[in-house]
């Protein structure tokens, strides 16, 4: 009896059943909804296959919204990478006291999750027309951000500056381990072979870090591209970026064509997916080196 049950089990391995709740859940609430959008992007209203929706992405305000989104994402990812890298380097290479590192990393873990409506208000309260810094600069230095620098928190640069609040910590979080992976012996080997500090950075350290840097840039890009709440809360509908336009489309079909909305969402997935795949691939390359 027992033996029969045993052989039955061997013939019909049932271990995969244990994964079923998870798989069904993820299928129903992640994979299928996404697939629905992706498939819809290639269908007409009555369900036949078409590429027209994708072609139609090139009409109206859609191309410009993608373009602005890409620009904001690139700008915030580039600045975030740069500043985050400098800060991570400062703590990893101990230009600043050693004890700062651990709290900074903890703090970065927190702040990198800080996208959202409250963040928008924080920057509005600081750099907005009557914000803390705006007033401080005006009252003490006679500098008016809007007049002198053309800076407006509700604009392209305003959004970029706001995104930096979570982009910089994310960069620190990801690049700090990569910087720690630079072994002291590499610097010493370069130096004893006659290289200057600059030559070491140009020929050894930066090439080693390059996949990590580029990969993290891609991740930051995707991170900014998908951010919805901060953008809507900050600029309402005044800035024409993809998430805001898609939001309006979902709310009220402003494009007048649901399948065009799918195509727009599909475009978003493609862009964030490409960025993420790039990140994962480059990260694997970097890890191969740092073995």
């Amino acid at each position: 009896m027992n033996r029969a049950l045993h052989t039955l089990r061997q013939r019909l391995p049932l271990t995969w059943l244990g994964l079923m709740p998870f798989v069904i859940f993820v299928l129903m609430f992640l994979v299928l909804p996404t697939m629905h959008i992706v498939i819809g992007a290639f269908q007409t209203r009555d369900g036949t296959f078409t590429l027209q929706n994708i072609i139609d992405l090139n009409t109206g305000t859609i191309p410009s919204s993608y373009w602005i989104s890409v620009k904001i994402s690139v700008a915030s990812a580039a600045l975030g990478s740069l500043i985050g890298f400098a800060m991570a380097a400062a703590v990893v290479f101990e230009a600043v006291p050693r004890w700062i590192k651990s709290p900074l990393l903890t703090f970065s873990g927190v702040a990198s999750n800080f996208a959202g409506v409250p963040l928008a208000f924080a920057f509005l309260a600081t750099f907005g027309p009557v914000g803390l810094v705006t007033l401080f600069l005006r009252n003490n230095f006679g500098i008016v951000l809007q007049r002198d620098f053309g800076f407006n928190i509700l604009s392209f640069w305003g959004l970029t500056v706001t995104y930096l609040f979570f982009q910089i910590p994310l960069m620190i979080l990801i690049i700090a381990p990569a910087l720690e992976g630079l072994r002291r012996e590499w610097r010493e080997a370069a130096s004893i072979l006659g290289a200057t500090g600059l030559q070491y950075w140009r020929m050894v350290a930066l090439p080693i870090l390059f996949p990590s840097l580029l990969g993290t840039f891609a991740l930051l890009f995707a991170n900014a591209f998908g951010a919805v709440a901060t953008a809507i809360a900050l600029t309402g509908s005044s800035l024409n970026i993809v998430p805001i336009q898609l939001f309006a489309q979902i709310r009220g079909d402003v494009l007048g064509n649901p399948n065009l909305g799918y195509a727009m969402a599909f475009g978003m997935i493609v862009i964030t997916a490409v960025a993420n795949v790039l990140y994962i691939w480059l990260r694997m390359r970097a890890e191969r080196w740092l073995k």
């Binding site: 909804p33 591209f225 998430p243 979902i250 649901p258 964030t272 997916a273 993420n276």
Partner: peptide, 19 residues
Amino acid sequence: LTLLPLVIPAIVIVFGYIR
């Protein structure tokens, strides 16, 4: 699978739900 939500923007997921 668990990392997919970091790749697919939330707005796309909810769009799928609604449809």
